[in-house]
Simulated scan of single mutants.
Amino acid sequence: MKKIILLVIIFFFVSCKNENQEIIQYDKQGKMISKGYMNDDEESLDSILYFNDGMMNSKMVFSKENKLSFYTKFYNENGLESEGNTINKVKDGRWKYYDSKNRLRKTVEYKNICNEEFANQEFNYDEKGRLIAEKSTYYTHKFKDPKFELNKVNELTVNYVPFIKKGTTSLLVFSPEFDSSFCNINAVKKDSVSTTTHLTFKIDVSFGDKGKNNFRGYILEYYYKETSENVFTRREKKTFINIPVVVE
Rank of each mutant, 00 (worst) to 15 (best):
V153R: 10
E134T: 11
F123R: 08
V153L: 14
K135C: 11
E116F: 13
E149T: 05
E122N: 11
F148D: 02
E116I: 13
N115I: 11
N115K: 08
T140L: 04
Y125N: 15
K152S: 05
E117F: 03
K147P: 06
I132R: 14
Q121M: 09
D145F: 04
T137R: 07
D126K: 03
E149D: 06
P146I: 15
T140W: 04
K152P: 03
E134G: 08
Y138Q: 13
V153I: 13
F143Q: 03
E127Q: 11
K128M: 12
K152I: 07
N124E: 07
K142Q: 08
A119R: 11
K128S: 13
A133G: 06
K135Y: 11
E149W: 08
A119K: 10
K142Y: 07
K142E: 09
F143N: 03
T140P: 08
Q121W: 01
P146A: 12
K147G: 11
K147T: 11
R130S: 13
S136F: 00
F143S: 00
Y138L: 10
E149G: 03
E117K: 10
N151G: 05
C114G: 14
N115H: 14
N124K: 15
L131T: 00
E149F: 11
A133E: 09
G129A: 02
D145L: 07
K152V: 15
F148N: 00
E122D: 04
K142P: 03
L131V: 01
K144M: 12
F118V: 01
E127A: 15
Y138M: 11
L131I: 02
E116V: 14
E116S: 15
H141P: 00
K142W: 05
N151W: 10
S136P: 04
R130E: 13
N151A: 10
H141Q: 00
N124D: 10
E122H: 05
K152F: 09
F123G: 01
V153T: 11
P146F: 11
E134I: 15
A133Q: 06
D126H: 03
T140G: 12
K142C: 08
L150E: 01
N151P: 00
N124L: 15
K152M: 05
N124S: 10
I132S: 01
L150Q: 01
K147Q: 08
E127F: 08
F148Q: 01
A133T: 12
D126F: 08
E117N: 06
N120D: 05
H141W: 12
Y139F: 05
K135I: 09
C114N: 15
F118Y: 07
E117L: 12
E127I: 09
R130F: 09
F143K: 03
E122K: 15
R130M: 14
N115S: 12
T140M: 03
Q121L: 05
E122P: 09
F123W: 13
K144H: 06
P146M: 08
P146G: 07
C114A: 12
K144A: 14
V153M: 11
E149Q: 06
C114Y: 04
F118Q: 00
E122R: 07
D145Q: 06
C114W: 03
V153D: 14
L131G: 00
K128H: 09
I132A: 07
K142V: 08
I132K: 12
P146Y: 08
N124C: 10
N124W: 04
F123K: 09
F148T: 00
E127T: 10
K128F: 09
